[in-house]
Design a binder for these strands. Structure first.
Lengths: 139, 139
DNA sequence: ATGATTGTGGGGAAAAGTGGTGAGATAATT
DNA sequence: AATTATCTCACCACTTTTCCCCACAATCAT
């Protein structure tokens, strides 16, 4: 689903996963390091399976490093009764997640950013650049 | 649909969505940041789906920034019994929406502007420029 | 003028989010 | 092996926010 949601990670490493996104992601989903930015990617069960199958049968020279990176870091997330999930320390460290967090909904995926990293990203990506790319795609 | 409609955003972040436009947009539509100006774009369900499909399968280097910009900011709008919609804080912040708002109908889309931003835009866009562009298109 | 439709404000119920406490399990120390 | 300490997890309770409904004001059409 869509939208930008701010939450906090408490002392126990728990963070709320927004209710709007829980409707899409259900009671069981996967989190791992993002390949593109210092943030975390949240996969639905379906998109996770797609990811696995798209790596199957690929030459190990390419597939293995990706598998190590993605699967090696992955953790399963199951919201508790309050809608909170626990994020593995290694993942928190990768994305520099300390206190405040931004969850970004991207249709079939989501991203979890440290708030200051997200602000830095949005500020350092000029609107004109994005508009230009969109034009290339005919949007 | 067409036309320019003035409304106010109340203390709870709600604003009326004009009845004339509701006929076109129905009970369910999408709002996100505009790629071209500091305003918000309203998509019908159909144009929103088109947007999603036009991004599918594109290289992530181009698609991801756009997805983060558009989907990350998007919110679903469902008018209540009074015809009002809620606009997410991040969207209000982007378009500098505080009190008075102008909704501009653009056939299959609409735009939501802060009133003063809209006035500034219309004043800073000389008629001759628009007429020139129209001529280029043979209108 | 009168009724219907549209737009605005406010209050209350329900849900979402956050912090804290206690029980069970695991590990450690004697 | 038993007791203690620590850690993790699930549950509970409070606070805040969101959503939904009702009532009033304004505008439009007949």
């Amino acid at each position: 689903m869509y939208g930008e949601y701010e939450h906090t990670v408490d002392a126990k490493g728990r963070m709320n996963f927004p209710a709007k996104l829980r409707e899409e992601f259900g009671e069981h989903f996967y989190i791992c390091k993002s390949l593109t930015e210092k943030c975390l990617t949240v996969y639905t069960t379906e998109s996770w399976e797609e990811l696995k199958t798209s790596l199957k049968g690929k030459p190990s020279k390419i597939a293995l490093p990706i598998e190590r990176f993605l699967f090696g870091s992955a953790c399963e997330a199951e919201p508790d009764k309050q809608g909170r999930i626990a994020i593995a320390p290694a993942l928190r460290a990768y994305a520099n997640i300390t206190g405040e967090v931004v969850v970004v909904g991207l249709v079939d995926r989501a991203e979890i950013w440290d708030k200051s990293a997200w602000e830095e990203y949005t500020n350092s990506t000029p609107l004109e650049d994005i508009a230009g790319m969109a034009e290339e795609l005919g949007i």
